[in-house]
């Protein structure tokens, strides 16, 4: 038997895809994904995607930058190379604030970005869903829902029939 990645349904309207996602989730499918031209909060809600790890990762990055930036300045000016400049104290903490802040923002921004890319498993130039003919329109004006074969409830024929009953324009098998 030929290996398949899943079954994909194409929808024309945004209302349909929201409804379809709810129905598919209610039917007990969990290994599924929805492909839309733009982010849709309604879909996140139906997919029960609520919390992400992106914010905690960013928080950790930011705090690392905050502490690291301050320690860097304190260590170099107070311990490693103490130098009297303009009669100011060695530990001139007020003048360390700007760089500390910049380090925090820099590390937090990188953490947010790299965290998001890593959690999404990108870059991934090839993916089975690209094999679906007409999938380009997920960038334009069509909405796709794919139930993946890894789902315990998955059954190629049965799932395809179920998706078809939700008002899909067409239902296709996605080659692995």
């Amino acid at each position: 038997m030929k290996q398949i990645y899943g079954v994909m349904a194409e929808f024309e309207h945004s209302e349909q895809i929201i409804e379809a996602t709810r129905r598919v989730y209610e039917a007990g499918y969990r290994s599924m994904d929805v492909y839309t031209p733009f982010p849709m909060h309604e879909i996140f809600h139906e997919l029960h995607e609520h919390r992400t790890w992106v914010s905690p990762i960013t928080m950790v990055g930011g705090l690392t930058g905050l502490v690291g930036g301050f320690m860097l300045q304190t260590w170099t000016t107070v311990i490693d190379y103490p130098l009297n400049i303009g009669g100011r104290p060695l530990f001139s903490w007020p003048s360390f604030i700007p760089i500390t802040f910049e380090c925090m923002v820099l590390l937090a921004a990188f953490s947010a970005l790299i965290g998001m890319i890593a959690l999404n498993g990108l870059p991934q130039p090839y993916h089975p869903v690209f094999n679906v003919p007409g999938f380009e329109r997920s960038s334009q004006d069509r909405f796709f829902l794919c139930v993946e074969s890894t789902d315990p409830k998955f059954d190629a024929a049965e799932t395809a029939r179920f998706l078809g009953s939700l008002g899909a324009q067409r239902v296709v098998e996605v080659e692995a």
């Binding site: 994904d33 929805v34 849709m40 995607e49 992400t52 992106v54 914010s55 998001m116 130039p125 993916h127």
Partner: peptide
């Protein structure tokens, strides 16, 4: 595009980031 495929699960984290 890093192989972006318009996945909603990706969009979700993307929006947060």
């Amino acid at each position: 595009s890093l192989g972006w495929r318009n996945s909603s699960r990706h969009w979700h984290r993307y929006e947060m980031a």
